[in-house]
Design a protein around this nucleic acid. Structure first.
Lengths: 258, 258
DNA sequence: GAGTGGTCTAGACCACTCC
DNA sequence: GAGTGGTCTAGACCACTCA
C-alpha cells in the first residue's frame, strides 16, 4: 500500500537533507507495479489488472495509476491496448522478429528476406575477466557461451558471441536453442523467466580476420561493424553480453535521433 | 481556435470512411503549437506562453494543453523547467556540445577532451542526384557543400561531408562557419531560422582510401565507421544530408535500445 | 451491454524560481 | 508573494473490444 498522509515525502530525515527529497505518488505506484513485474506476479504477454482495480489496490485515484502505467508503457515494459487491457510486454509475440536488432536491408524493403539461424556452439565455461566485469559477476563464475550466425536471404550477415550468467540459465543447451522457434529473447522469457528490457550498444568498425572471414564468407581485411551489446533486466541488472560482427555490404545499422 | 462541438471528429465524411476517423483535442492543440513553432512565433531558447495562457487562447482546459505540451517535450521540441516556464528547444545553448553526435571516448569519461573543428571546404554547387533525392529537391538545384574534420584531444576523429539546400542557407560561407562558436546546428537556428528536430542515421563499416586516410591520419585499408545522417526540420522536411567517417580506434558510437 | 483504456474538465494543492 | 510547471483527485463521457 501507499502512504497517503505525507504524500510524496520520501524516507530520509527532515530538514537539511540534500538528496531527492520528494517522490510523487505516481512514482511510488510505478515502483510497486515494477516490483510485481519483477516478481513474476504477471507474466510476459499476460494482462495486468485494470486501472480501476489497481487504483483500488493502491488506494489512489485512477489518474495516478494511469500516469504510472503511461510511463511504464513509454519504457516498453507494458503495452496498452484500448478496449482490451494493459499487457506485460514480451519479446516472444512481437511483430518484428528481433526487437533489438537494428539491421535493415539496403533494398527498400521488398519482401521480408528469408532468415536462418545457425548455431555454432553452446558451452559452459568460467567467465573471462572482461565478461565477468560486464555481467557484474565474479571472474571465474560459470557462464553460458553461445556462438551463432544469422543468415538473411541465404547470406551470412551476423556473427554473434553471447555470454549469459550460468546460474540464471541452468538448463540452456544447444538443443534447447536450436529447437526454439522465434527470437532468443522469447526463449529466455518463457524458459528462464528472464526478460530483457533495455540494452546499451557500442559500435565500431573493425577488420575481418581469418576465422571470422570464413564464417561470414568475406575476405580477411574486409570491414565489419562490431556491435557490443549489454542487455539489462529489471533493476538495471546486466544479464547478457553480446559481441556481434555485422556484414554491412548489403545491410546497414539503422538509428533514429531526436 | 479549436472546434469544441464535435470534438475530435476530423474532417472527412461520415460513416464508411476508413482512415483515422478521430483526432483527440490535445492532438489538435499540439498541431497548433507546432504551427506556431514552425512559423517562428516563438524562437529557439525563448519561453512559450504559460499553460494557463495557452488554455485561454485555445479555449480548452489546462490539462489538455498540458498533455499536448507533454508530448512535444517528449519529442524534444520543447523543454519544461518547473517554476520558470516552457521553452523552445535549441541546439545552441545545450549542455552537450553535439546533441546528435553519438560518439563517446573509450576512456570512462576522464576530462572532456579538447575539441577542434577544422573547416576544409565550403562551396556551392549543383546537387548530385543522390543528394538531391535525399533532400527532396530537383537534381541540379544549388546546394551548399561543407567538408570538415573534428579533432578530439588533438587527434582527427570525424570527417564530415555535409549538403544543405542552397535556397535555405543563402548567406552561408566558410568565414561564417569558422567564426561561429558552438555547434553548427546552433548557427543554422540563429542565422538561417532552420531548426533540426529529428534525424535518421545509417551506419556501415568501410575501409579508408588514400584521400580519407590522409585526412584522418590512418592507413589505407583501415576500418572506419560510415554514418549517413539525414536531418529533418518541422513537417518532416529533410534539410541536411551528412556523410561522416569516424575513426573508432579510441572512440565508439553509443546507442541505447529499449 | 459490460468492461477496458482514452479524453476532457475543474479545482485544489505542492514544488520551484525569481523578485 | 506571485507566477510557473507538477501532482492528485473525482467525475463525465468517448472509442474500442468482445461476448
Amino acid at each position: 500500500m501507499v502512504s497517503t498522509v505525507g504524500v510524496g515525502v520520501a524516507a530520509g530525515a527532515g530538514v537539511g537533507v540534500v538528496g531527492p527529497s520528494f517522490s510523487p505518488l505516481y512514482q511510488q505506484i510505478k515502483s510497486l507495479i515494477l516490483r510485481s513485474l519483477q516478481s513474476g506476479e504477471w507474466r510476459p504477454g499476460e494482462a495486468i489488472p485494470s486501472e480501476i482495480e489497481l487504483a483500488a489496490r493502491f488506494k489512489v485515484s485512477q489518474g495516478t495509476v494511469r500516469k504510472a502505467v503511461d510511463e511504464l508503457a513509454a519504457e516498453n515494459l507494458l503495452m496498452r491496448r484500448q478496449g482490451k487491457g494493459t499487457f506485460v510486454a514480451t519479446h516472444a509475440e512481437e511483430q518484428v522478429q528481433y526487437r533489438f536488432l537494428r539491421l535493415a536491408s539496403d533494398r527498400p524493403d521488398a519482401l521480408p528476406a528469408s532468415e536462418r539461424r545457425e548455431l555454432l556452439d553452446c558451452r559452459r565455461l568460467r567467465a573471462p575477466v572482461d565478461v565477468a566485469r560486464a555481467l557484474q559477476i565474479k571472474a571465474g563464475e560459470m557462464v553460458v557461451e553461445v556462438r551463432r550466425v544469422l543468415h538473411f536471404s541465404g547470406q551470412p550477415v551476423v556473427l554473434d558471441d553471447i555470454w549469459l550468467p550460468g546460474h540464471m540459465f541452468k538448463g540452456l543447451t544447444a538443443d534447447r536453442l536450436s529447437d526454439y522457434r522465434g527470437p532468443m529473447y522469447g526463449l529466455f522469457e518463457s524458459e528462464f523467466g528472464v526478460r530483457m528490457i533495455r540494452a546499451e550498444e557500442k559500435l565500431r568498425a573493425v577488420l575481418a580476420d581469418e576465422a571470422v572471414g570464413a564464417l561470414l564468407q568475406v575476405d580477411v581485411g574486409a570491414p565489419l561493424l562490431s556491435v557490443e551489446r549489454l542487455s539489462f533486466t529489471y533493476g538495471d541488472q546486466p544479464v547478457e553480453l553480446r559481441r556481434g560482427l555485422y556484414r554491412t555490404d548489403h545491410h546497414h545499422y539503422r538509428n533514429e535521433l531526436s
